[in-house]
Computed example of a mutant assay.
Amino acid sequence: MKAILHIDSSARPDSSQETRFGSHTRRLTRRFMTEWRKRNPSDQTIYRDVGATPPQPVTGGWIHAAFTPPEQREPWMKDVLAESDALVDELLSADVIVVGAPMYNFGMPAQFKAYIDNIVRVGRTFGFDRNREGVPYWPMVTGGKTLVILSARGDYGYDPDQRLAHMNHVEPGIVTPFAYIGITDVHRVAIEYDEFADDRLQNSIAAAERAVDSLVRNLAGAHMAA
């Protein structure tokens, strides 16, 4: 049995399948999870809606607490890190992480950036030793986890080698910190043309849904065999 961590970060509460101005990323993550459950109904699902309930942003106190050795932490430090600890525990327990991350002004939503800042934790998801030879940092997340990024964009041409690739800071902004902590098996699907609201959008939605279905078939089979 596998564990799937499903994270939504869109500020829009509904799926575009339900309402005209709903979230395309919620549409894709729900489709992914529905198709996954058809193939692996006994798998555990962990759901986190950071779009509706964002994690607390990192503060000076958070940084002080995180970089204090656990055995030296005062009670207030443990309180400050409680939410981060819960998010890290969820991440570590998952085999597949499915993230719905729309493009907001060329980057990910602030809500999901707050999530990343909470799970990139010294001593928990990455190590640091200033006396270590070579690179003093190393990833601590092991176990062959898979990251799936399901995005949506108002314009088009944001994929690698396309017209606006240099302006896409969503997937690169997610892939880099996840790789830093040790999660490097990454898959991506995106809907484009949202602002055009014409046949191009409908065709992009249909293509993304087919890509999600294909991705589930491949990943679900691979994880069943693992």
Rank of each mutant, 00 (worst) to 15 (best):
V122I: 10
H187D: 02
L81H: 06
Y104G: 05
T25S: 14
E209Q: 13
R73H: 09
N118R: 13
R30I: 05
F32L: 09
N40R: 15
S10N: 07
D213Q: 08
V96L: 14
R124P: 00
A86Q: 06
A222T: 14
Y137T: 07
A3R: 07
P139W: 01
S42D: 13
E74A: 14
S16Y: 07
R26Q: 09
D194F: 00
Y115N: 00
V58M: 11
L201T: 08
I4R: 12
Q111Y: 01
L28Q: 14
V96D: 03
P41G: 13
P172G: 04
N203K: 12
V50A: 04
Y104Q: 09
S93R: 04
V80E: 15
V212N: 05
V135S: 11
R130C: 03
G134S: 07
V175K: 13
G123A: 04
T184A: 15
L92F: 00
F196M: 12
G61V: 01
H24P: 06
P70K: 01
D14F: 14
I46H: 09
I149P: 04
L150H: 01
W138Q: 05
D49I: 00
T142A: 15
R217W: 02
D213V: 04
F178S: 11
A226E: 06
H166F: 11
G143N: 10
W138F: 14
A225N: 11
R27Y: 10
P69S: 09
R188E: 12
A94V: 09
D117F: 12
V80L: 12
A82Q: 08
A206E: 15
K2F: 12
H187F: 05
V98N: 13
G61Q: 07
D85H: 12
V148W: 11
R12F: 12
D129Q: 06
A114L: 03
V148P: 08
T59M: 13
T25E: 14
D198F: 12
Q111N: 03
Y193D: 14
